[in-house]
Design a protein around this nucleic acid. Structure first.
Length: 259
DNA sequence: ATGTCGTGGTTACCACGA
């Protein structure tokens, strides 16, 4: 089975590429983030024509997550239990579902904006709610993974220039400690291989020619429990999908499982 | 360079988020 995660940065803007990519990559299950649309306007019909069912949690121009599957979708849960919300609003940043033999969460972790910003506090609180939510599945016998845009680079090796990220979000000890907590809960980082260059970056800012210069970050992660991790036969970042006109600023992370 | 995208509202530009 082939499972992937991809921050599409608007499913409306990305639809032609998304449909083509699903077919060309042979992906069975996709966790997607930043749908940037409502559940009503989500292109479920177009995906259904390709044989995919969609489970969607989306409310408008910001955020929005989904699981798209051609191996079934069951037991859908929309939202994170205990989600702290931001500024009084609980945002659509998490959805979980069982797709064939695997249970997955598709997550879009808050960005944090700046270390001194309230959004950074929200980010850390949100991680704690995620940790609590996945505790049972993380130690279970069924293959399970949290997949998505974590907005944290796990190590300095996961950013193109650690020095330029001093005092920035995405690399702070507290954010990395949140990832450590997820690993201590029973998950492990399924690190994909890069198709080019030395680092499996998954995100390159649209600005400043970051992609051609390979100024990237690995912030789209696959955190799987032991049964999931043991089933992994390959994992890679499809950087081809970051190329050209109409690309998202994130590339898909693709994982092959023997399940 | 605050260098690019994408969205929706206050629309043939702006503000916001990333």
């Amino acid at each position: 089975m082939r499972i992937a995660t991809w921050n599409v940065n608007s499913i409306t803007a990305r639809l032609p590429r998304l449909l083509a990519w699903l077919e060309s990559s042979g992906t069975d299950v996709l966790c997607l983030q930043e749908a940037k649309t409502t559940a009503e306007q989500f292109p479920s019909a177009e995906l259904a024509e390709l044989g995919y069912e969609s489970a969607v949690h989306a409310t408008g121009r910001w955020n929005g997550v989904a699981v798209v599957s051609r191996v079934g979708i069951a037991d859908v849960v929309r939202g994170l239990p205990g989600d702290p919300g931001y500024d009084g609003v609980v945002e659509p940043r998490a959805i979980s579902a069982t797709c064939g033999p695997v249970r997955v969460w598709s997550v879009y972790v808050p960005n944090g904006r700046e270390v001194e910003h309230p959004h950074y506090v929200y980010k850390l609180q949100w991680f704690e709610a995620l940790r609590a939510a996945i505790a049972g599945d993380a130690t279970g016998s069924r293959p399970f993974a949290v997949m998505g845009d974590f907005n944290v680079a796990p190590t300095d090796d996961d950013v193109w220039d650690p020095a330029s990220f001093e005092d920035s979000t995405h690399v702070t000890p507290a954010e990395r400690a949140a990832l450590t907590s997820l690993r201590e809960a029973g998950l492990s980082d399924v690190v994909p291989r890069p198709l080019k260059y030395d680092h499996p970056y998954t995100y390159w800012d649209y600005r400043q020619l970051c992609f051609p210069k390979n100024r990237g970050m690995r912030i789209d992660l696959v955190y799987g429990n032991t049964p999931f991790a043991k089933a992994v036969s390959d994992a890679y970042v499809d950087r081809e999908e970051r190329k050209g006109k109409g690309a998202s600023d994130h590339a898909p992370v693709v994982v092959d499982l023997d399940v």
